[in-house]
Design a protein around this nucleic acid. Structure first.
Lengths: 233, 233
DNA sequence: GTCGCCGAAATTGTTGACAATTTTGGTAAC
DNA sequence: GTTACCAAAATTGTCAACAATTTCGGCGAC
């Protein structure tokens, strides 16, 4: 629901509001663990729940499949995907590559206007986080990083980073719920803003990559002993 | 038609043979210029041409839209996309990033078995190219580079490179049709094989990035004066 | 007691008709 | 001659019923 409007600007995803709403809702359900890995997603159930035609559900599942959040197989329906440890490492490897390069391409120092916008969004993130409103905090966090990466002067690169952001949403949202990690996240956001303001590219680049690591480490620690069943199925 | 079998291995794209065939055929039509930029793709026409239901066509157009080869807008159908010069630069910028990083991750020197396979595919590419069979040459060229990038020890990165390979297929297939560029391409393939064989990573990395440039330069020279109409539309 | 087979239930894939939207062509007013 | 508007054609979006496939439970054979 919340991202239905932002979606409208992206000319890439050709879709109406209903589809966007379903995708967004399912994304949040998966990311925040209301839908657990290996859980089945039945088209007719979802069709009834969201009060839309089954073909809309099908399109939504297509998009989620494309985003890597669910996995579909012929005549067997969709299940929430659980990443194997190797997959998580691979995805974060790619994110590190992309975000480092994006950080190199952002013009620094950033304009005062941009810094002001960034601070406003980050304040929102901090406020929601401390208030325990995880859903809104996650959205503000999304906005914060999306704003930054959109400055990289390569729209396709920014979109690609956004794609991998979504793919790993279930992992990096881990940090928001954990008080200690959330503290660190807030501190790093402040450092990023500072680096952009004074034009310290080296710090900015390092922060852009390292900012991902705590959530990844926490996720791996929590799910370390898991068996990966989704290889050959 | 030709890639219908290879598609089967990729568990990611959940689709039957018909969908894969339609996507592949339309891809080739666009890449080799039988379908020209800004040309409309009408669902019912395609449905009749390929003798499949319209929903299959719709799924195919979805995938082509996702690959960037066509552009769709609400209630207005699909058109073959023509990239603006900025978009082309952006896409090649991303390809350079990804392919450089992949080259860094490929274990070197490559095994003799792998080198042998590579030489066999490349011989096929050279043969088809010199015989003027552009369609098969393009497929062999695809195989050659896909083989290499699949060695990067990160399946998601390899898939991502493949995605951008498809996105820019219309551009880099330019080189195959041009005799001088094709000569250079063949020579560089030989150098890449040599670098992988003896473990010369620096050359391999440089080649992996620079190999794209001639086709890009030729494409930009040919389409330099174009007006870009697909911005806000 | 276990293994294999068969049938029913559940679920997804497909089809064709219908509704909504956009485009096109023509006509009348200025 | 040009512009505004309206109706018809073309095209895409939506829906509900039907067909095909997979899964699950029970039954019988060994």
């Amino acid at each position: 629901m919340a991202s239905a409007e932002t979606e409208d600007r992206q000319a890439n995803t050709r879709s109406d509001a209903r589809l966007a709403a379903v995708v967004s809702a399912l994304q949040h359900d998966i990311v925040f663990g209301r839908l657990k890995p290996r859980e089945r997603l039945v088209e007719e159930e979802l069709s009834e729940r969201f009060a839309v035609g089954r073909h809309v559900i099908r399109a939504a599942l297509d998009e989620l499949d494309r985003n890597g959040l669910v996995r579909r197989r012929q005549n067997r329906g969709a299940v929430v995907s659980d990443y194997s440890p190797e997959e998580v490492d691979e995805l974060y490897d790619i994110r590190a590559i992309l975000q480092r390069e994006a950080a190199r391409r952002v013009p620094l120092p950033a304009s005062p206007d941009f810094i002001a916008t960034l601070i406003a969004v980050n304040d929102d993130y901090v406020r929601c986080g401390k208030a325990g409103d995880l859903d809104k905090a996650a959205i503000a966090n999304d906005q914060f990083h999306q704003l930054i990466f959109n400055e990289c002067r390569n729209r396709h690169l920014a979109e690609l980073i956004q794609q991998y952001w979504i793919k790993t949403a279930a992992i990096h949202c881990y940090a928001i719920a954990n008080p200690s990690l959330a503290d660190q996240s807030r501190e790093e956001h402040a450092l990023m803003i500072q680096a952009m303001r004074i034009g310290d590219r080296e710090s900015f680049e390092t922060l852009s990559v390292d900012h991902m690591q705590p959530a990844l480490a926490a996720f791996k620690a929590a799910h370390g002993g898991w068996i990966s069943r989704n290889t050959t199925g």
